[in-house]
Design a protein around this nucleic acid. Structure first.
Length: 596
RNA sequence: GGUCCUGUAGCUCAAUUGGAUAGAGCAACUGCCUUCUAAGCAGUAGGUUUCAGGUUCGAUUCCUGACAGGAUCACCA
């Protein structure tokens, strides 16, 4: 039983004994005391005035007195209006600290026996990754790690969109303008090479449209009649028919792209347990269409197309199979959904996909539930907002994208120049230094993208967005490095900061207590981040923790402290702060350095 | 036009899910390095929470209606 539960249980008892009222633990929830008041936890009595039949102050006082007399962790209280502010004794805080300090599984909750799949990244193989993908990948990875910490067994999946008209566009342009260029001959990363021809296609395509319009066609006609577009469509048909030349080219180009993606994923620090390829899954789902027709979930129109009617659910009628019997997007998504379940028998399945597909997933999940899938209620769309630039929305065809590889390198370079300016790492080897720049640059970038509530769209200003001070990754990393330095010194001079070193300590400075209070919230935050699928909860917490530690650091001395117990305790609390930061940042996919 | 999301300090974001005088960071200003890393700490200033109603002890949070921005509404993916 943790401290909050202990206090709420006592309040429940107080209601029983003082007012003869049976309150649920749920309605007795505590909240943190605002820092301008004395106390740690606050109980709001307003909702219970009808039960106490006293004014707010008197109600609070009565419960407060009961707590001081009957709850051993409560040392004092004060009431302001209807707010009962509760103080916890210093020895209780020290007990709590000892428990945290002795916990070998800090930040890892016990297994819950449940399995969850997290699908993220899911790139197209016709162009390199950009800023929007970074948010997706960092989010997906962090959510997966957070769910692991919550006791789930996690499968990270990547559904690669490796076929379709967009790939054919790159292929057509490559055939016409490629001259046998390869990543090796051009020095371009494979994904960038494919992207180059995707852009060439679009340029040439637009020229053709202009030409055709000049010859008197409408723009719509021109788009359909453009020889390039016709060729791309023909190539798609040939691909589906298994034409050897087309398939060979497709394999070659995709191979280049995967090499490029591998490098990018490595730099991002993300990984996957299972890859799905749309070239394998795009024909799936037709059996589910049949099943839906049998069960009466779907219906057939006169022309043979198959639909689902979701108007009773506030949605619309939605096509699930074309009149010619071919699949649409949602057909294969139904099939892939079922395939994933057959492969892994998950309890939950999370899709990390941008909010422009909200409607699509709404429909997909409603369908799977109507079909009575056992996992229907476990389907979840982690919908995140777009990343906007100051110039507006990113459009890959128009070249207004921030490339992922470029941005990551830029961050690392900035970290390098910043570090050199400060001149603190003189003893570092070149490799050590390079490693540090990467840790700092990637930390800044990841933290920036993860600290915002996923569902909100966010603004990214390449010039201004990335800071190394304030609410940033490097600030938290810096706090860790400071502590690491203290621990090195403590080890060097041989201080015992095991719990034996501060046994019997019974006094606390406010800065020490505040630090214990926030350290004690770690598991609660991991739980909340997991329940809400929101790494931002954890990011915010780690910032608050680092801030609290830096206050402690500035206010209290460690190696000038004369009382050996106090000194030992301060090192211990520093050590556990570092451990919490390291573990928490790890859940966000961010590394922390020992020196910077 | 229908549906959904968003609107909080000059800027970027919080606000424990209905609680106290709405908090951080950046930018601006003032202090603090002979002491464990100043990528830090302390402080000043900055707000009619887009607007108008409503619900109640109490609203940034819930409801209604405006306004603004975005997404989506294909036999595209």
């Amino acid at each position: 039983m943790n401290i909050e539960q202990k206090i709420t249980a006592s309040i429940q008892q107080a209601f029983q004994e003082l007012f003869g009222h049976q309150a649920t633990l749920e309605e007795l929830a505590l909240q943190p005391t605002r820092k301008e008041f004395e106390g740690t936890f606050t109980f709001v009595v307003f909702p219970f005035l009808k039960i106490t039949k006293l004014n707010p102050e008197a109600s609070g006082a009565k419960i407060g007195e009961y707590l001081v007399a009957n709850c051993d962790v409560v040392s004092s209280f004060n009431t302001v209006k209807g707010f009962l502010n509760i103080s916890v004794s210093e020895t209780s805080w020290l007990d709590i600290f000892s428990k945290i300090y002795g916990n070998a599984d800090l930040g890892q909750l016990p297994t819950n026996g449940k399995k969850v799949m997290v699908e993220y990244s899911s790139p197209n193989t016709n162009k390199p990754l950009h800023l929007g993908h970074l948010r997706n990948n960092f989010l997906g990875y962090a959510v997966a790690e957070i769910l692991k910490a919550n006791g789930y067994e996690v499968v990270k999946a990547n559904l690669v969109n490796d076929r379709g008209i967009h790939i054919c566009k790159s292929m057509v342009a490559y055939r016409q303008h490629g001259n046998g260029e390869t990543p090796a001959s051009s020095g371009l990363k494979g994904d960038h090479l494919a992207g180059k021809y995707y852009v060439i296609f679009d340029k040439e395509y637009k020229k053709e449209i202009q030409q055709l319009v000049a010859e008197g066609q409408t723009e719509e006609q021109a788009k359909k009649n453009s020889p390039l577009m016709l060729e791309a469509q023909e190539m798609l048909r040939l691909w589906e028919a298994g034409d050897k030349d087309v398939v060979d080219l497709w394999k070659t180009m995709n191979g280049w792209v995967y090499e490029g993606f591998d490098a990018t994923y490595k730099k991002m620090g993300v990984d996957f347990d299972k890859f799905y390829y749309e070239s394998d899954t795009y024909l799936l789902g037709k059996n589910i269409v049949d099943e839906g027709l049998e069960k009466g979930v779907f219906f057939k129109k006169e022309n043979g197309s198959v639909w689902v009617d979701l108007s009773a659910d506030g949605l619309d009628e939605k096509l699930v199979l074309r009149a010619d019997g071919t699949s649409v997007y949602i057909t294969q998504d139904m099939g892939t959904c079922e395939l994933k379940y057959q492969d892994f028998h998950f309890d939950k399945s999370v899709y990390v996909v941008g909010n422009e597909q909200d409607y699509h997933f709404d429909v997909l999940f409603k369908i799977m539930r109507k079909l009575g899938r056992p996992y229907g209620d476990g389907l979840y769309h982690l919908s995140y907002g777009m990343v906007d630039l100051p110039t507006g929305k990113m459009k890959s065809r128009e070249g207004t994208v921030v490339d992922a590889d470029d941005l990551m390198q830029e961050m690392i370079d900035t970290a390098e120049s910043h570090t050199k300016e400060l001149g603190k790492i003189d003893g570092f080897s070149a490799e050590k230094a390079a490693e540090l720049y990467e840790i700092l640059g990637m930390g800044a970038l990841k933290y920036f993208l993860l600290k915002v509530d996923p569902k909100k769209r966010m603004l990214f200003n390449p010039q201004e967005s990335i800071e190394f001070q304030g609410n940033t990754g490097p600030f938290i990393q810096y706090s860790h490095a400071r502590i690491a330095s203290i621990l090195r010194k403590a080890d060097q001079i041989g201080v015992d900061y095991s719990s034996a070193g501060f046994e019997g300590l019974d006094k606390l400075e406010p800065a020490e207590r505040d630090l214990i209070v926030i350290l004690n919230e770690f598991e609660k935050k991991i739980t909340a981040a997991g329940e809400e699928y929101s790494p931002s909860v954890l990011a915010q917490y780690l910032f608050d923790l680092a801030k609290e530690y830096n206050r402690f650091y500035a206010e209290l001395s460690i190696f000038h402290e004369n009382d050996p117990k106090v000194q030992s305790f301060r090192i211990a609390i520093s050590a556990i702060t570092a451990k919490t930061i390291r573990k928490g940042m790890q859940l966000l996919g961010i590394k922390v350095p020992d020196r910077m």
